[in-house]
Every structure is written in C-alpha cells, then in structure tokens.
Design a protein around this nucleic acid. Structure first.
Lengths: 153, 153
DNA sequence: CTTGAAAGATGGGGTGC
DNA sequence: GCACCCCATCTTTCAAG
C-alpha cells in the first residue's frame, strides 16, 4: 500500500482524535469531503486503521499497580513459546507482551490492583506448566509517557 | 467518582469501538439514548475518557524496529529526573516510558525505522547532558500483545 | 428515564474539471 | 484523481415532561 502525505496526515489526526467528523477532517487536510472519506475507508479496509477506541484513564477509576516483568523460559522450542504466548494473550492483567533478544525471552507489562495480586498471578504461572525458568520484576513507580506513534516528520 | 455497571460497560464498549453511535451504545447497554449520552459526557468531563483515537497498525505502513531499553542515571535528584523525563516526552521515537524501582531507573519502548537509527538516538542521548550512567537494550523480535485494559470481571 | 425536535453529519449519488 | 452540488437518513445535542 502506498501512502501519500494526505494519508499520513489523516492517520495522524485520527490517531489523536478518532471521533472527528469527516467534514472537519476534510477541512484539516485541505481536501473536500468525498475524497477524504474515501481515503479513510481505504485505510480501514487495508487494515492500516484497525479500529477506533476511547482512551480510558485507568487511574481515575481504580487504584492499580503496573509492573514490568522479564521472563526467561526453560525450554526454547516453538511449543513452549506458543503455550506461553497464548496464556499471555488470554490473561487480561497482561497489557503488553514482547518477545525479545538479549538475555531474556519476554518482557511484559502487567496491571493489577496491587502487588499481592500480581504475585498471586505469578505464583499461578510458576505452578502451572508454563516453563518459566526465572523472572525479574520492575515495579512501575511513575508512568512518564504512554504511546502515541506516527508523527510525520 | 462512583461508577456503576452501566458506566463500566460503556467504557468497555467505547474502548473497543470508539466510533459506535450513541444510539447503538444505548442499545447495547439497554438504556435509552439520553441517559446513556449523559453518562458518556460525565465520563469525558471527569477525565475517565481522555479522548478517542484510531488504532493504527504501524506494521502496515512502514518497516520499523521496536526496542525496550533499561536506563540508569548517574545522579538521583529531581532536576536530573525532570530533565530526563522531559526529553523522553519530547522524543517521538519514545512511545512508552516508565520510572521503576528495582535496579534501573527507567524502562522505555523506542520505535525507529531500524536499529541504526535507534543507536544514533542513543548516541545523541549519551553525548548530551542527560546523565545516563548505563543502559541495556532488548530488541523486540515479536509483539505478542499490546494493551487493552478494562475488561470487567 | 422518556419523548421530541432542531441542527448537523453520514453515505450515497451525480456532474464537471 | 479532485471539487461541488443534492438528498434521504441517521446522529447528536439539549430541552421539557
């Protein structure tokens, strides 16, 4: 898919303001409504725009704790990886999960009500057949920044 | 702020589908439009809903590399922290930044076109007066999961 | 919480450049 | 490709009951 400056601008604006009206969007990118609308539709159909969502500030509704966790597995074959990854995907407390090179196999971000609840979750993982060899926990003391990619320079 | 089941349901739905119409939303939570709309407005004004945005699949539009970086500073006083944090906030390549307890001061996620570009960014940081004592880079080889909190159980 | 109503947006269509 | 009409239908927003 080939994107021009208009498309990038559309993405940039929609990323910040997903509920902007198509006419306002058209104004901002200096196109009229129809071509603008067709670009948006194209971006959605191509899967560049996967969907729209509200940014919910979790801090306003409940006390919670975030931790970052480095995890290494005992075994390094694809079934072990697959099992681990599917458990991560199915665990709502895990908000982010990345496979990494560089000493550990995975780095996760986990959100729970408190540290106890995190530790209980970890205990369940350790007791199950997930094959965790070792893990290291970093407690998040402050969230400085949280995602907003795409900024066309 | 006190949230009831309706509000949680609203948040859950809006998080997944931020462009749903208020009438559809009202249908789904089994309320009529106006009360539903007032709840949404209240959630927005209270800052529980911070905004709306398109979920953009960055992989569809450009090749890029994500790295996770652990950073420790030389000095641990608030001006050093503030300076570091403001640079992180102003650097678009940094998508996430967390202050942590547990051996390192910060953990970041950085997105660049390639590893070279990341390394150049790091070189700039090291040469500037940011006070980085040491850092460790984990290259993300696979993104397993990426954020979707709030799931009322 | 419900109804209702005005103002505006959507999603098409079509024409012409 | 784009812009500039039109138009029926739905949505938003805010009264008043």
């Amino acid at each position: 898919m080939q994107l021009d400056q208009y498309d990038l601008k559309i993405l940039q604006i929609l990323q910040e303001n997903g509920r902007i009206t198509k006419s306002q969007l058209a104004d901002e990118i200096h196109l009229s409504v129809s071509p603008c609308w067709e670009r948006v539709k194209k971006l959605e159909q191509a899967g560049v725009i996967e969907g729209y969502g509200a940014r919910v500030n979790i801090n306003k509704i409940l006390k919670h704790t975030s931790v970052l966790v480095e995890i290494s597995l005992k075994e390094h074959h694809s079934t072990a990886f697959k099992r681990f990854e599917s458990v991560m995907c199915d665990t709502p407390e895990v908000t982010d999960c990345y496979a990494t090179g560089g000493g550990v196999d995975y780095i996760l971000k986990v959100q729970t009500n408190d540290i106890d609840q995190y530790q209980r979750l970890m205990d369940v993982w350790l007791d199950s057949e997930l094959g965790i060899e070792r893990y290291f926990t970093y407690i998040v003391t402050k969230t400085i920044k949280q995602r907003s990619p795409i900024n066309n320079e």
